[in-house]
Amino acid sequence: MVILSMIPASFFFKWLWDRLNIFATVFLSIFVEALPYLLLGTFASGLVEVYIDRTQMSKWISRRPLPAAITGAFMGMIFPVCECGVIPLTRRLFNKGLPLSAGISFLLAAPVLNPIVILSTAAAFGWGQMLAWRLGISLVIAVVVGLVFSVEPDTTNVLLPILMSVDEHDHSLEINASFGGKIRAALLITADEFFEMGRYLIVGAMLAAGLQTFIPQASLLAIGSGPVLSVLVMLGLAILLSICSTVDAFVALGFMGTFSFGSVLSFLVFGPMVDIKSIIMYLQVFRRRAVTYLVAIPFMMSLLAGVLFNYLKP
């Protein structure tokens, strides 16, 4: 009797143990993969803090919304960051007086419009239509969302105050600090931001890993292959997988046979802007309403683009 009653329990524990293992593997894989990029982004943010001051910023970037949004979208070419690194960097740039429209379009475009991602997309799909449309549509979405935000005159309605204000009166941050002193200050900021943003990367990766441990991917893929449904499935997958924009092209390549050009394109456009971990990180920087816009507008526009391509280029 005792032995019999043990059997289901041991099966249950084996099942639980297996789930736990998958969870750990997927979680660590997302974390390990994102780590260098997060470090790069936070270090860039630290360098911006010590090397750029507010007067320089206003000289470089126009105050008019459209030119500012377009400049912002192309700033990724100078700061090659992916979607984890771009968030602390954008917050820092806002702090330095970057206009809202420029910052928002930078936030959305930089994870795609940067040399590393262009090269990796080209490596996966070649220098062809997929790359061109990916860049073009990402640019349009980023500029549009940037313009939407430019309507808001008061940045405090969009941005949360920086809670852990990183040492404005830190000793090492003297105005005439030496090169070494400045780098040191930048590294301390990097560390603080790494802990702050890392926290949300970890929460996001845990959520993504949890979903992947319990929700069969096949059930998502089985939902649909229609021109609209298939785009929705790919958008859902972009959110669920939470992979870095620097490498997502290779993942997208795997879907090329099962999914249409338009659906895969929508995955490539939307994934770098929104996924589980970036939503969680956005919530630390922006007010809820702003996050809603940041998620909803790219979602609608990527959906529209994907569906259009499915009809024009089946």
């Binding site: 297996d18 789930r19 736990l20 293992n21 998958i22 750990a24 593997t25 979680f27 660590l28 974390f31 852990m164 802990f195 702050e196 890392g198 926290r199 970890i202 929460v203 845990m206 992947q212 441990t213 319990f214 929700i215 069969p216 991917q217 096949a218 893929l221």
Partner: peptide
Amino acid sequence: ANLWFMLVPLLIGVLIPSRPLDSSAFSTKG
């Protein structure tokens, strides 16, 4: 609190014995 979160990957990495994905992942990973 920021500090404690950084313990999560360390604890998961150290406490759960690692193994590559195997057939138990077929049901969700495909």
